[in-house]
Design a protein around this nucleic acid. Structure first.
Lengths: 184, 184
DNA sequence: GTCAACATCAACGCTGGAGTTGATTTTGGT
DNA sequence: ACCAAAATCAACTCCAGCGTTGATGTTGAC
């Protein structure tokens, strides 16, 4: 519930009044349950972030060729976005470079998780470069950033409860684009 | 100058004190030149947004096959991001769904521009579906959103003054990925 | 029925940041 | 040298939004 409000208005744009309203209660009542706006936000996000990284790692370390792993990763991330909607998007849409100084410790941790996640993708792609299953015409990090962009940008338009396509279809389409390309 | 501050902190995270400091002056002096924080922001962004859309339209209406146009569009957008850096990113990184009510009129206009831009890309891709030069396995809008994501997400990591690769290289890599795919 | 733990909320304090005002300094034209 | 326009800045006002407190319900165990 509070997550939806954060998703719709962003952290800075959300006041505890907005959340209290959404919950049909009073702002002061909210403080009976949470220590601060920051606490509330972190509590919402905390669990989901780890899950995503763990999935990526298990794909990297699992069976399959590099291209298969890239596909699995894209599809499973999209599936997570839908499953935990809107929790993961709440985090992604926050530009962690823009957080206020007080929130810096937490922001650093989150950036680390993002960084680790991206690294997993880079490693998968680099393995593909090594064994020749993926084109090494460009550096693996740049290819990874492109993929992360495609996927991460869905926070701006994808709502699993309203979209005409499923998260899996989106993931599959993106994987098709990025692996096989759009050329007919 | 002020644009850099907005880029680094986001609209909400930027105070006029931050900007005044960056300019080595006083906040009140700033108000001698601009009517409000909002005015300042719009003034910075106004010009650049139109340019980008115009470029897209001229590519759509120009010579070349659909795949060539997709490539041109991606590369030219990346080039614009670098040329006008950080102005276009300042706008992109603002999630226009999160703006405060007072800013709504302006936000609607900006959303319209974004929408028009995306539409141009969709039209290019649809033309490719028609003439068989691009795969129509997925809807054109979804393929477009993927491309917009790749490109738009660069606001999180690309700084033309620091990056080890040029905007054109990035654009070219993304075009390669999306058209030919990464499969070797 | 009573009491303690649980929960709610009106009313407050406080701070950060937008925008204003008026007095003062700087600049440039004659 | 003089004056008017341009520019600067100290010192305000105002308000939104975070967080607190204490008084007032509500509930469930015995």
């Amino acid at each position: 519930m509070a997550a939806s409000v954060f998703k719709e208005r962003g952290f800075r744009g959300t006041t505890l009044n907005h959340i209290a309203d959404a919950l049909g209660t009073d702002r002061a009542t909210l403080y009976y349950y949470v220590g601060s706006k920051e606490d509330l936000f972190q509590e919402i996000v905390r669990e989901a972030v780890g899950v995503n990284l763990a999935t990526a790692i298990s794909i990297r370390d699992g069976e399959g060729t590099a291209p298969e792993k890239v596909r699995q990763l894209i599809v499973s991330v999209m599936a997570s976005y839908a499953e935990f909607y809107p929790v993961l998007y709440v985090l992604i849409q926050e530009n962690l470079d823009h957080v206020a100084p007080e929130r810096d410790t937490w922001a650093q941790e989150m950036k680390q998780v993002n960084h680790d996640f991206t690294d997993v993708l880079i490693e998968i792609i680099e393995a593909g470069h090594q064994d020749g299953t993926l084109s090494s015409a460009a550096p693996a990090w740049l290819q990874s950033y492109g993929i992360m962009g495609m996927v991460g940008w869905t926070n701006r338009w994808f709502d699993p409860n309203k979209a005409p396509v499923s998260a899996e279809e989106i993931g599959s389409t993106f994987a098709d684009m990025v692996l096989g390309g759009l050329l007919a």
